[in-house]
Amino acid sequence: MIPALVPLRGSPWTVLPPGAYAANLEDVAVTFATNAWRRELFDGLVLASGKLRLAGCPTIYLDGSYVTGKPKPGDFDACWDATGVDPAKLDPVFLEFANGRAAQKAAFKGEFFPSSMTCVDVGQAFVDFFQLDRFTGKQKGIVSISLSADPLLSAKVQP
């Protein structure tokens, strides 16, 4: 369940309270795909999630201004658990980080990082870095999505 967004002193938008909140893609749609642009970003998230699921990815973690109160986020940020991922089935775009992840943004309208990969700016794994507000450095929440059990993907993705 995705909790209500809360104010965070020093941050321009409301954010998720600290923690990783288990949800499915339908929950994300109800909570965050609230206008035409956010629905477009959501469609890219679903496309990418399906590709990651086919490669064996069990979980993604959703972050960025998409999971805040910002009316028109620029994109979404996500990181994916590489446990069990078959490199031969992984779309190579998930490993393309050049030019500000332009290939990922073109393909999905968002950015993806392996969750255990270190964000060099802060020296933390992305799954941990994503739980820090970029404006204040304070703790905030992210959304954890289990791809293997997601009903939206089960309806769309055939193994």
Rank of each mutant, 00 (worst) to 15 (best):
M117W: 06
S148K: 02
K156C: 03
P151W: 01
P12H: 10
Q139E: 15
P151I: 02
G44Y: 01
L52D: 12
F126A: 15
K140E: 06
S144A: 12
V28F: 01
V67L: 08
F113G: 00
A103T: 13
S49M: 05
Q124P: 05
A22Y: 02
G44R: 03
A20T: 09
F126D: 07
G19A: 09
A102P: 02
T136A: 04
V15C: 15
S116M: 05
L62M: 04
T34D: 15
C57H: 06
G100M: 04
P58D: 14
D91W: 03
V85I: 14
F129D: 06
V6T: 10
A33M: 05
P71I: 15
G100R: 01
V157Y: 03
D81I: 10
T59P: 07
P114M: 15
D77A: 02
G50M: 05
A33G: 09
A48L: 06
A106F: 03
W80G: 06
Q139S: 08
K140Y: 07
D133R: 02
S11W: 01
F135D: 02
A36C: 04
F130Q: 01
L62D: 04
D77M: 00
A4L: 11
T31R: 13
Q158I: 04
F129W: 10
S116D: 13
L47I: 11
D91V: 07
A55W: 04
N24A: 09
S116K: 13
S116I: 01
S11A: 11
I142K: 15
E26W: 03
G137S: 06
K156Y: 07
T34L: 08
A102D: 06
E40G: 10
D128Y: 05
P114F: 13
G141Y: 04
V46S: 00
N35I: 03
A106V: 12
F42G: 01
V15L: 13
F42A: 00
T68N: 01
